[in-house]
């Protein structure tokens, strides 16, 4: 593989900087996280997959290497409060049934998955608990309470490799997601692949295009200084190409999430990551 220009640029900008980090190896709280690995077999046009962390500047990269410096962690703290907070008619909190949130280690790597012939995301599972077992109102798909909770639950899987099922029951959803990934939409007539497969590593204005990996979500973006959900980011992408976004939590975005999760197979969960 030829060395993409962004790798060289990142290396230069970091040499001599005060960070213990270099551009290719991410270490969070002393734990090394893999940011590059061989692409899964089903990806026909890409040899190596990279975490979005690799496409960021040294200063942004550094924010993710320390759990105090990472501003997303304040929302994880909020998730911890919500975890213990009784809500709804049944007088229950998350912790009434789930003793320790750490028991969810590994969950992030397997979502979305098929349940009862439908595709479910982590947000769906959280809301199912709230409405079915707590007698509480469903949270909005991408609002603060939900992203705080998905960040807390996702964090339990940090460092574990993404590994969604794409065969059997999941196959038709995966095929649908793949079709969406390669379908041009919007006034700019672009598909996901145009930026994130054909042009990752190149500049879009003053920014590096990433591979559009979702292993770090929900992610704290410097742009809006809050946690952003996977579907919220899809929506942003679709608006950027002047397309009418699909609904957050809808069938299209769930299928796309499954397909993208499978394109990150082998990359490790970085939740909650920090991005531009």
């Amino acid at each position: 593989m030829n060395l993409k220009p962004w790798i060289a640029i990142a290396a230069i900008s970091l040499s001599g900087a005060a960070f213990a980090q270099d551009s290719s190896s991410l270490s969070v709280e002393g734990e090394a996280l893999l940011t590059e690995t061989a692409a899964p077999e089903h990806m026909e046009n890409v040899d190596t997959i990279y975490s979005g962390w690799r496409f960021r500047s040294g200063e942004t990269q550094a924010l993710q290497t320390d759990d105090f410096d990472n501003p997303a962690m304040i929302f994880v703290d909020k998730g911890i409060d919500l975890w213990a907070k009784v809500d709804g008619t049944e007088g229950k909190s998350c912790s009434s049934c789930h003793e320790d949130v750490a028991d969810f280690a590994g969950l992030r790597t397997t979502l979305p998955r098929v349940e009862d012939a439908g595709l479910v995301t982590m947000e769906n599972l959280v809301n199912e608990c709230r409405t079915e077992r707590m007698g509480a109102e469903a949270w909005k798909y991408s609002k603060g309470n939900m992203t705080a909770m998905t960040a807390l639950i996702g964090l339990q899987s940090r460092g574990m490799a993404m590994n969604v099922a794409i065969d059997g029951d999941a196959a038709p959803f995966w095929e649908k997601g793949k079709e969406l990934y390669y379908t041009r939409v919007g006034q700019l007539d672009m598909s996901c692949s145009n930026c994130h497969e054909d042009n990752y590593g190149t500049m879009i204005r003053a920014d590096h295009l990433s591979q559009g990996q979702i292993n770090g979500f929900p992610t704290y973006r410097l742009k809006n200084a809050k946690l952003n959900s996977i579907h919220g980011r899809f929506k942003g992408c679709m608006k950027n190409i002047r397309a009418t976004p699909f609904a957050e939590g809808g069938e299209e975005f769930k299928a796309l999430e499954l397909y993208l999760a499978s394109r990150g197979e082998g990359l490790v969960v970085e939740t909650p990551s920090v991005r531009n």
Binding site: C195, A206, K223, N276
Partner: peptide, 8 residues
């Protein structure tokens, strides 16, 4: 201060 692409 750079003007971002989709990130900005």
């Amino acid at each position: 201060v750079t003007i971002g692409g989709c990130g900005g």
